Computed example of a mutant assay.
Amino acid sequence: MISLACEIAGVKLNNPFIMASGTYGFGKEYSAYCDLNKLGGISGKGLTLHPKAGNKGTRIFETASGMLNSVGLENPGIEAFLAHELDEMVRWNTAVLINLGGGTIGDYVEGAALISEDNRIRRLDNRRGADMIELNISCPNVKEGGLAFGVETETARQVVREVRRATDMPLIVKLSPNAQDIRAMAVMCEEEGADGISLINTFSAMKIDIKRRRSVFDNLYAGLSGPAIKPIALRMVHQAAKAVSIPVIGMGGIVTAEDAVEFIMAGAAAVQVGTANFMNLRVGEELADDLYRYMEAEKIASLEEIRGII
């Protein structure tokens, strides 16, 4: 018997493929093209305490072996999501992660508290709620001059500590590739009670329109994702996985089942798939099928046999 199943912070996944935040909406947008029951999980569009309209101007630009995005956390806000979107997400037999962003520590804490209270009420009513919170500490820290929370370990510690106090839900912390020390950042998350970490977020990058003589993006810079970043992402996941005992969710340029196997061999408990969703609307379902075939050919019964072997 071959099993693709895995577990993150006590949450069982059908397989290791989680659709990455910002690339899959809240799931229903893809349900006409892909059997969502065949996915391991969905990390919903990044949410903030209050609704955001997102950035103006160009938001997406294709580049060599990747994609630049400057969407700007467009989202309906946490309360609107809980009232109008979550019921649809939990219909599917797949893990649900709520990706939580914020501009201040207070925003993060209040957002986590709202999500947790909703989860508590749902449990009392015997209704399914979200399975995990994915804490995105790559958002700008408004009160500190725009510095991302996820760059300096001690700054990030404050956010993780306060959010951990605000929720009893499984907490996954999403790390920035711009962290000064990715190992120290991962260790800090474990010290502060995180149940897992996910990495990496996009790299800050740029594209210039030489005809208009200006950046393609109104905000000058954008986030680079896709196959171009995979070797760097793989290295960072390996470093983080060696430094902590909590589960690590790897991401960055995963397009094929072979890519996913590399991340698992580097120590990832599961993986997230982002840019590939724009290349193939059924990629999540196909990746699971391809991974099964790989394991069958290699006579691997469980992912535990290859996890962290490098």
Rank of each mutant, 00 (worst) to 15 (best):
G267L: 12
A166S: 12
S225P: 08
E285D: 12
T275K: 14
N93V: 10
S204L: 15
S21M: 07
E262D: 15
L36K: 07
D107V: 06
R212I: 02
E85C: 12
E62H: 12
L281G: 04
T153D: 05
A205I: 02
A260R: 04
A297L: 11
R235H: 15
S21W: 05
L36T: 08
I133N: 00
S176R: 07
T48N: 10
C34S: 15
L175A: 10
D107I: 05
I182W: 03
S204I: 15
G274S: 12
N15E: 13
G196N: 01
R293G: 03
K174D: 00
D118K: 02
G103L: 05
Y292D: 10
D168F: 00
A260S: 09
N55F: 07
L97W: 04
F278N: 06
A112C: 14
E110V: 13
A240D: 03
A166K: 02
L147I: 15
A241W: 00
M169K: 00
D131A: 08
A156L: 11
F217E: 10
K230P: 11
N119Q: 13
D259S: 10
A64P: 07
V255Y: 12
I254Q: 07
M132H: 00
R128Q: 05
G252T: 08
E298D: 09
V248D: 09
T94A: 14
Q180A: 09
M188T: 05
I172S: 01
G223T: 09
A205V: 03
C139N: 12
G150I: 04
E285Y: 03
D289C: 12
A228N: 04
A301C: 09
I249H: 02
A194Y: 02
V109W: 04
G284N: 08
E152C: 09
H238P: 11
S31K: 14
F217P: 09
L303M: 14
M188E: 09
P16R: 01
D125Q: 15
G274E: 13
T202M: 09
R214P: 07
D290G: 06
L68E: 06
S138H: 04
I78T: 03
S70F: 02
I200K: 07
A240G: 09
N280Q: 08
I98A: 02
G57S: 10
G196K: 01
S138P: 06
M67P: 01
E7V: 01
A297G: 03
N99Q: 02
T275W: 10
G10H: 03
R59D: 07
A5H: 08
G274D: 11
L114I: 06
D118A: 14
G146H: 06
T48L: 15
G54F: 06
G72Q: 10
I249S: 01
